[in-house]
Amino acid sequence: MTWENYFMPSTTGEVLALLEQHQGQARLVAGGTDLMVQHRWDPLEVKSLIDIGRVPALKEIREDHGRIYVGAAVTHSQLVDSALIQGKGRVLAEAARSVGSPQVRNVGTVGGNVVNAQPAADTAIALVALDALVHVSSPGKEREIPVAEIFLGPGKSSIDPAKDLVTAFSFSAPDSRERTYFVRFARREALALPLVNLGLWLQLEEDGHALKDIRIAVGPMAVVPYRARKTEASLKGAVLNEEILKKAGHSISEEVTPRDSFRGSAAFKKRLIGVALKRGIERALDLKGVDRHER
């Protein structure tokens, strides 16, 4: 395996200059935990790699004017250990914690996880639930895109790593009536892709009982991370009780379109996603005694 150049720039300006200079012949790499594996079986066509892991601005997690910003080169371990993310982006901290293994989390980045666009990418599911924005810089151009809109198909996103630099993701810091949660079912608890993963964001009415709003992001239930909008609509305004939760579980099972795979049949995944939703809402709201199957 080889490429001709390996660049390690230290500012975003240098990254963009290198992209411009190489005109599509160089691509960005962050942690490389996916890229190094892909390259081994299916060598990359580019001549040069630009490693963005040494750009301090891309490794920051910060809060600014009510939004949380997560740099693209922030590792999964950084997310897990961040008090800010634990407190204000719980679904993202939990999603990051379920990725790969300690070794993979220490190196793999949130930017890479999202741009690689796997249908069950854990942090992508969490960011969709948080309705996050992707901040993208290209030579001479800056743009912000809702994260849910960048996914085009399995392994395909509208971010071109030979042209576009994702600088950060951002989402609104939650207020006291918002909750998030992440649920994941896999064959084992490390180094296993999920059968089902579900990211949840919900907002309670001021009375603290009815659901004002909810976002449900799921994977791998379609070719890209998917928002279960029908089920979301059916839950808006609902006062939660066992029956509503059961109905919501049925609703989401009907709504999603998973495939049969070696990890599990479509029917099994449909069943599991209903369980995941019910469990997610119960845990997010700390409802007692509804779910007795504690880990």
């Binding site: 390690m8 190094m36 594996v37 790699l49 490693d51 070794q103 220490n106 190196v107 180094l191």
Partner: peptide, 29 residues
């Protein structure tokens, strides 16, 4: 495995365990 799944290649880099089979050597700089 050569693909970051078995951990037999684990080394500690800057205080963190990493799979050396999927780390570009350049990053050791």
């Amino acid at each position: 495995c050569g693909m970051g799944e078995c951990g037999a290649c684990t080394v500690i880099m800057n205080g963190q365990a990493v799979n050396s089979c999927i780390i570009p050597a350049a990053r050791a700089d």
